[in-house]
Write a protein that binds this DNA or RNA. Structure first.
Lengths: 208, 208
DNA sequence: TCAATTTTTTAACGGCCGTTCAAATCAGCC
DNA sequence: GGCTGATTTGAACGGCCGTTAAAAAATTGA
């Protein structure tokens, strides 16, 4: 047994190759889902983007829904990373919130990863949907807590945290519907503008 | 020919009955589309809500897409009404904008009419989609012009009107995804809070 | 170079769902 | 009450698309 791996186990080389191919498929699917939605994109559509027949996809994913599920998992990973970063790098609520908005916008625009998480949750099976929704709820809770903290600290005026967070997430998620990577609006600039606007709406007016 | 109507023409009575039935179907479809999305709701689903077989629907609409199209038309009618009202009843940009936000939220929650307009535009045929998109673009232009006017008048700080309007519409459209008519959040209150938050983010900070 | 195995293809099935059409039932009207 | 048109039904078709299975092609590793 070469290099000590189990008999009949795939070599590291083929494992890596397979991993890359999976990522390619996921990326192609991601773009297709974003452009035409999960239900209207067929496996042929995804396969065509890769120059391959649709049956080839079944060597990497058991079914169509699993492809969508993995898209969601990747997005959630990005979100989790964002949250850790915000906690580690910023102090006050408004800075943390602004950072999260900027990063979320970046995920939505640069990598385009966020779009299925925004729009295609209902397409998942009940169990998987429950898992994704639970994670998304956790993210929403983090945002609500930030709004509350800001209000307690006197940074923000007293607003309904639930409603404010729904507004923020709606604004961000909606990006997937109109943003065009090759368009006139720069992704990073968009993130900053969104952060300015959406955090600005929470801030106390300067005492005169 | 009774009452002077053309021979073989339906009587006013049956015309009215048909009109009502169409509205019933549209409303049932609207709720179904909102709850599960256009592509996953079948004609059986819509018919079941009406206690009828799906083939009965074909007496009122030529195909499934036409039902969706009529939903869009109704929403656009509401939007147009909103715009006229805002122009007629309010003076400054912030008041007009706040009114439009409140009303749009009301359309989104009370009547639930706005949800297909928010989410199911891509499901329309190219020609119909073009028509609906053009109308929606007109609405967006009205909002952008309000933001610009507010900035010119010194009410609003200088923001990117395009980006601000996308944020506002995203926040509002997203309501269709989480709002539950029987839930804890009151529709009118939600409209006011959205208007406060989204217009507040545009306003100049008070000079100290 | 050649066997082993990974990857892709070809062919085809099967179910769902929008749609059609003729027949049956219902409602309006004199 | 009975004729006429409006409405609903039942049965069935047909295409699209996700999925399966087995054969072919390509890649790996010695």
């Amino acid at each position: 047994m070469a290099h000590g791996r189990a008999p009949n186990a795939p070599s590291p080389r083929v494992r890596e190759k397979r991993r890359r191919r999976r990522a390619e498929i996921l990326h192609a699917a991601l773009r297709a889902f974003r452009e035409t939605g999960y239900h209207t994109t067929t496996l042929d559509d995804i396969a065509e983007r890769l120059g391959v027949r649709k049956t080839a996809l079944y060597h990497y994913f058991p079914d169509k829904e699993s492809i969508l599920y993995e898209c969601h998992r990747e997005s959630l990973g990005e979100i989790a990373r964002m949250i850790e970063e915000a906690e580690a790098c910023y102090e006050c609520a408004s800075d943390k919130l602004a950072y999260l908005i900027r990063e979320h916008v970046r995920v939505m625009t640069e990598t385009l990863e966020g779009s299925p998480l925004a729009f295609e949750v209902p397409a998942l099976s009940p169990e998987r949907r429950a898992e994704i929704v639970a994670a998304r709820d956790g993210y929403e809770r983090v945002l609500r807590d930030l709004v509350l903290q800001g209000t307690r600290d006197g940074e923000f005026r007293p607003v309904d945290p639930k409603v404010a967070v729904f507004a923020i997430l709606g604004a961000i998620n909606w990006i997937a519907r109109w943003y065009q990577p090759e368009g006139a609006i720069d992704a990073l600039e968009l993130g900053s503008k969104f952060a300015d606007y959406l955090v600005g709406g929470l801030k106390c007016e300067q005492p005169s």
